[in-house]
Each structure stands twice: as C-alpha cells, then as structure tokens.
Amino acid sequence: MKKSKNKYSPWPAVALCLVFLALRIVDLALFTDLETSFPTVGPSAARWGAALVGAAALLVMGRRADEKIASGRKSVLGVMMAVTGTVLVLAGLSQLLSAAVVWPSMVLLTAAGVWFFAMGWRVLSTPEGRGGTAMPPNAVQCLIPTAALLWVLIQRFSIIPAASARLGCTFRVLGALGALLCVGMLCKLLYVPGGTYGCTVQQYGSLAFYFATCHELPQAIFELVRGSVSEQTLLTSLAMGCIGLCGLAAMLTTVPRSNPTKKDKAD
C-alpha cells in the first residue's frame, strides 16, 4: 500500500496567522491610539516590520505545498464567498448614505459582491468531486472583482492619507493587497479547475487571511466599539476580512488528502 507523498499541512500557516491575530488584538487594546492609529508604546516600524516578516514566513511555508489541487470539499468556500458577496453589496450600497457619493466605489463594490455571491452559489451547486469537470463561466468576469479590489487599494493608498507611522492606514493598504491577491487566486481556482497551482492557493490564501482578516478586521471591530469608524469604512473592512476567510477556506479545502487513495490501496 502506497501512501501519498504529500506531507504538507496548512495548519502551521494558520497557526502563525492566529498568533499574529492575538498580538494585533493586544496591541490595539493596550498600545494603540485608535483615533489616530499611532502606537502609544514602541515604534510603528516594529509593528509593520514584524508583520512583513510574518508574511515572508507564510510565503516560504506555501512553497512546500503540493501543486495538485484536491477536488470536492469546497462547500465551506462556497458559503464564505456568498457571505462575502453579501457584505460587498452592502458596502457598495452604503455609499448612497454619504453626502458625496463615490460612484466608482458603489458600482465596483456592488458588482464585485454580485460576482462573489454568484460564484459562491456555483461552488455550492457543483457536485462534490466534480469541480474539475464543470464547465467554467466566462473568465472575463474576473475583471469585476479585480477592478473593485484594485480601486479599494488605490483609494486607500493615494486618496486616503497614508503614512507608515499610522498603523491603521498601513494595515488597510496591506489588507486590500492581500484581498486582491486572494481574488486572483480564486479566479484560478474557479476558472481553471484541476490546475497545478497549489502553492499559489496556499501562499495567496494565507496572505489574504493574514492581512485582511487577522490585521485589518480586528482594527475595524475596535473602531466600531469606540464609534470612530464610518459605515462605509466598516463594511469595506468587513468585506476585506471575509475575503481573507475565503482565502483560508481555499487553503483548507484544496490540499490533497494524505490518506491513501483506492488506487494506492490496490497497488
């Protein structure tokens, strides 16, 4: 009986992300001024420097992944994509509540939400184990979420004043970047089923979960508690966090099982 040669597990990367999540929560609760996003103790460079070191570690871990993508077991990913789509639509429509509507944000975020929900429904409706044989939809649709996340990234980096010392701005930019990488990975997963890009799934999925969920999302929650965040910013951060959870779901559901297959047992 032959056993699978794949010994990679995504759980060490997940554990590293959770460690940084705990550190981020402690830092926000005790050592950060939430109104200005400036640290009250220690230099800000130590924070984002450590975050970049953690990201580099995730990239190194992801390189050990098997390039083969497992079929089936993607119901969790479908649910998370549907939830993400709902939050993105709310984030887009919330622009109508502001005095000056930013129409590109409203249109792009709403369209991206519809895409996420539709793709999540497609994943849920695809029979288990047949993800590689289903006819993929039009890949041009990938431009919709890509344009939306690219707009968010540009808006956060250039339109919203950003400085490396303001941790809130820095981690929002990194969160949008992680979400953008995750969208590219999801497009591969959905439109090129059965491909050999396991390393990409693990690396981009972990980076999205790391930056968008473990760094940006706690900040949005703390700002919500203090009442220092607008509805648009809150919903957009929640959407980024949900995209990070999509990356986590993709990581966990596409790793080939380490158990021997029926063919291996026959051998």
Rank of each mutant, 00 (worst) to 15 (best):
D264M: 13
L96H: 03
W151Y: 13
K263L: 15
L93K: 00
L150E: 13
M185D: 05
D27G: 09
T133P: 06
Q219M: 08
I25C: 07
A100C: 00
S237N: 12
A57P: 02
G195S: 12
L143W: 10
H215V: 07
N138Q: 09
E128F: 01
C142A: 15
L177T: 07
A15C: 09
P256N: 15
G78T: 01
W103D: 09
L149W: 13
V114Y: 05
A250P: 03
A82Y: 03
F20I: 10
G120D: 00
V14K: 11
V83E: 07
L77K: 00
G72W: 14
I25G: 00
C142W: 15
M251D: 05
L34Q: 01
G132I: 15
F117W: 09
V14Y: 13
Q155K: 13
V26A: 06
E35S: 05
V102M: 00
L97V: 08
P43F: 10
L58Q: 03
L149S: 08
V123Y: 00
V107E: 06
E35L: 01
V123Q: 00
L77M: 04
L177S: 02
L186W: 08
E35W: 04
V140T: 12
K188F: 13
D27F: 04
L58I: 11
P43Y: 07
L181W: 02
S164I: 12
Q155N: 14
L177E: 03
M80Y: 04
G92E: 04
V255H: 12
